[in-house]
Amino acid sequence: MKGLSGVEQPLVKAVIIINHDGKRVCSRFCDRVQWDDQESQRDFEMTLLRKILTMGDLSEGVDVMEFKNFVVAYKQADDLLMFVVGGPLENELIMAEVLQSLDETLSITMRGQVFEEAVLDNLETVLLVVDELVDQEGVIMESEPAELAVRVGQQGGSFIDQVPLGEQTLGQALQTARDQITRSILS
């Protein structure tokens, strides 16, 4: 990052969510020097996708690899691929933790329904999660999933709050209850 001559704090260079065709669902590129226009961003997303497709089956959890002089944490969530990209000397575990908390926060705020259609339907939630997770320059804002979920949905902006209790499934209702308890404990 420009202007920083001293030691760098851990920085996220990009948060990327794409589907299996390489179509962008929601991405935030923080390093504007590296990716200064849409084309280079798209390009990066596509090469990432190609790399992932050559790797065969992905494991369940968060994995890390070296890719084009970046450290990349990646995870598959249903029909989505999620990436957190850091510089070549970045602490791999921090990148993995950021991705882990992105995944968990989405799970909490979207009741475990993390797939492309649901994400697009709740895009505002996803955008807010990313915005509360890392700021536009890549500084990690908060990485505790429960806290993130609170910050995103604090004022009841999440869609589920508007669904009358009777129309929720039992699982959803339980989840809502659990969320509200968490919130009251944390805030």
Binding site: V62, L93, M95
Partner: peptide, 11 residues
Amino acid sequence: SRPAVRFAAIR
């Protein structure tokens, strides 16, 4: 057990 940890260590 976490692959990220193993990767970091081996790298």
